[in-house]
């Protein structure tokens, strides 16, 4: 299994209500947008298929052709974050040539390799820093889904701060449980999972959840960096930290929709690199800084009032 999730800040001044999320995500006529309210508002579009016939990146550089369909969906979390997620299950084809499209349409989200390939070679290729041009680019497919939501005329485009999207590429292979997360340049993250059952339906949801929290952490680090607490005047830094408090701190909800059988992946990432630990330390820093800034202001007012 391979996939890529793009995560970004919804281009709107404030949180959007569930009803608007539902409208933005109605990408397939006649199919329902699913909405969840606990433990955090989450709306997800129906799945859509994109037909592909292209090369698959491989670590060895071997030319491998794949034909099939990419399964994608868009989602909105907390009325604030948008995600585009695409995945394919790469399988060995039954034939050495391309079959009729009806064959592939009957296997949604499956890309069949035409010819020979090794699973590990393909997984390595997919998590390369710069996959070769013209190979299957799930990120481009996911980005289109994010674009569709962001370009809606119902959004006011006055986002409280600017933030780059993150690109979270993942692969899941069969084997002894193992998790490897790497942060790369240009906001790319790669996650290589080995699981007893990599084709379980919850794997994509797990990766979407991880991508969402990785974005939150990345954004908070960036907001704190821009605010430069300790280097600029307190009220100024506090004002720059405020958007974090208003818009993202409450969105941290690890493993909100992760299946029990996959919780161990989250737990292992909590152990190292320690997502929540870093998040909590940043949150404390933001809150403490704002509190001190407020006390300073209040203290000053108190004296002048006396």
């Amino acid at each position: 299994m391979v996939g890529e999730v793009q995560t970004g800040l919804l281009q709107n001044s404030g949180e959007i209500p569930d009803s608007l999320s539902t409208e933005l995500l109605a990408l397939v006529r006649g199919e329902r947008v699913r909405v969840f309210r606990r433990p955090i508002a989450y709306a997800v579009s129906p799945d859509r298929l994109t037909g592909v016939d292209c090369h698959l990146a491989s670590a060895s550089g071997a030319r491998v052709r794949g034909v099939g369909t990419v399964l994608s969906r868009a989602s909105v979390t907390g009325g604030r974050l948008v995600q585009g997620s695409s995945q394919v299950r790469v399988t060995r084809g039954t034939s050495n040539r391309r079959l009729a499209w009806s064959h592939y349409m009957a296997r949604p989200g499956v890309v069949e390799v035409v010819g020979k390939a090794r699973a590990a070679d393909l997984a390595g290729g997919f998590t390369l820093d710069a996959p070769p041009a013209e190979s299957l680019d799930l990120g481009a497919v996911s980005a289109r889904f994010v674009d569709v939501v962001q370009s809606s005329a119902r959004l006011d485009r006055r986002a409280p701060f600017r933030m780059a999207r993150t690109r979270f590429r993942w692969t899941a292979e069969p084997g002894e449980p193992d998790v490897r997360l790497q942060l790369r340049g240009d906001n790319v993250r790669t996650l290589r999972l080995t699981l007893p059952d990599p084709f379980a339906p919850g794997v994509a949801e797990l990766c979407e959840d991880l991508a969402l929290h990785d974005w939150l952490l990345t954004a908070l680090i960036e907001i704190v960096r821009r605010a430069r607490p300790g280097s600029v005047a307190r009220p100024e830094a506090a004002a720059r930290l405020a958007p974090a408090i208003d818009h993202i701190l409450h969105l941290w909800m690890p493993a909100a929709r992760v299946q029990d059988s996959l919780l161990h992946v989250w737990e292992s990432l909590e152990h190292r690199p320690g997502f929540t630990r870093q998040w909590q330390s940043l949150v404390n820093r933001v809150r403490d800084h704002v509190t001190v800034a407020l006390l300073t202001v209040a203290g000053g007012d108190g004296r002048s009032g006396d």
Binding site: Q11, Q150, A159, M163, A164
Partner: peptide, 9 residues
Amino acid sequence: RLFSRLDEE
């Protein structure tokens, strides 16, 4: 699409 993405970032 390009302008919209850049304005986002």
